[in-house]
């Protein structure tokens, strides 16, 4: 069993307690307009193209079976006939073409993760599964979780909550902490921002909570988009209604996804190029804190 992994990040310190390794799996059922990892949305491999890095060596022209690379005054990559075979990326030593995603078995992933086991042990850290949406690779996930648990790792999963309850139920015993995304509390707004409504997401969250699963609520916030008071207070109320929420983490918007969209050859759906400002962040923190005793932090 394999999954498409698009990154393995060592010394990840924002994805759960202690020093962690975060494994990013490719594929997501949501299409958030602010997505900062657009390369995580599709399950299949994709190609990043950064024309400014191209040194014009010509390897991609020669090797591409479908002649997608076009020379000329403006170097172009026509993706119409691209089959994402990745041959061009193998020969692009300048790094202008990069294959995003590689198929890995659970054992391969675990081998990489276990390299830092000593750091997890000394810091209370471990493995974090993220994406995309890790639940999209459910069978792979089950195998990896079982093996990681057997290796004694502390495990976090970052999830958008949009998967069948039966799947969450099956993995509950392996997960030490859910990093659970709350992108919008209003169902319609949720659909507008992400493409799906949030009923299933909230239902799963309650069931996880009822089953004793520990959670940190993670709230991406974009100034002027989903940072209205009603949402902030609803997040606080949601946390109050749950028994096992340890913390609310705010994830202020950053525009890194915009550049990635360009490298993927897709249009960004949110052309906001500024980072969330400190003033807004302070306002969000105090607003949510006004409604709950649960600790609220900036991630």
């Amino acid at each position: 069993m394999t999954a498409t992994v698009f990154d393995i990040e060592k010394f990840a310190v924002h994805d759960g307690p202690g020093i962690r390794t975060t494994v990013f799996l490719k594929g997501c059922p949501l299409r958030c307009i602010w997505c900062h990892n657009p390369e995580s949305q599709r399950r299949e491999k994709e190609i990043f193209f950064s024309p400014e890095k191209c040194i014009g060596c010509g390897w991609c022209f020669r090797i591409c079976p479908n002649h997608c690379h076009i020379a000329g005054e403006t170097r172009r990559f026509d993706r119409t006939n691209c089959i994402r075979c990745g041959k061009c990326t193998e020969k692009c030593y300048a790094g202008a073409l990069e294959l995003v995603g590689r198929e890995m078995t659970a054992d391969e992933v675990l081998d990489e993760v276990l390299k830092d086991k000593v750091f997890y042990e000394n810091s209370g850290g471990g493995l974090t599964l993220s994406g995309g949406e890790p639940m999209m690779h459910f069978e792979f996930l089950c195998e990896l979780l079982q093996k990681a648990k057997a290796a004694g790792l502390h495990i976090c999963i970052e999830t958008c909550g949009y998967a069948p309850w039966e799947h969450y139920e099956r993995i509950l015993s392996c997960i030490d902490l859910f990093l659970y995304d709350i992108k919008a509390t209003d169902p319609e707004k949720h659909r507008h921002f992400t493409g799906v409504t949030n009923e299933l997401i909230l239902e799963n969250l309650r069931k996880i909570d009822d089953s004793g699963g520990n959670t940190i609520l993670r709230c991406p916030l974009v100034p002027g988009v989903n940072d209205d008071d009603a949402h902030l207070l609803a997040v606080a109320a949601l946390a109050n209604s749950l028994k096992n929420v340890q913390e609310i983490d705010l994830e202020p918007y950053h525009p890194l996804g915009v550049g990635k969209c360009a490298r993927l050859g897709i249009a960004s759906r949110l052309e906001v190029n500024e980072f969330a400002d400190e003033k807004s962040i302070e306002k969000w923190l105090s607003r949510i804190r006004s409604g709950t005793e649960v600790p609220v932090k900036k991630s």
């Binding site: 010394f11 310190v13 202690g18 020093i19 750091f119 000394n122 810091s123 209370g124 850290g125």
Partner: peptide, 22 residues
């Protein structure tokens, strides 16, 4: 920025002590 709050400091501390332990 990584040196400011207690939580991150604990992580750096763990990192350095792990290195020394090894």
């Amino acid at each position: 920025k990584m040196l400011k709050d207690h939580e991150n400091r604990e992580k750096w501390k763990a990192l350095f002590l792990s290195y020394f332990r090894m």
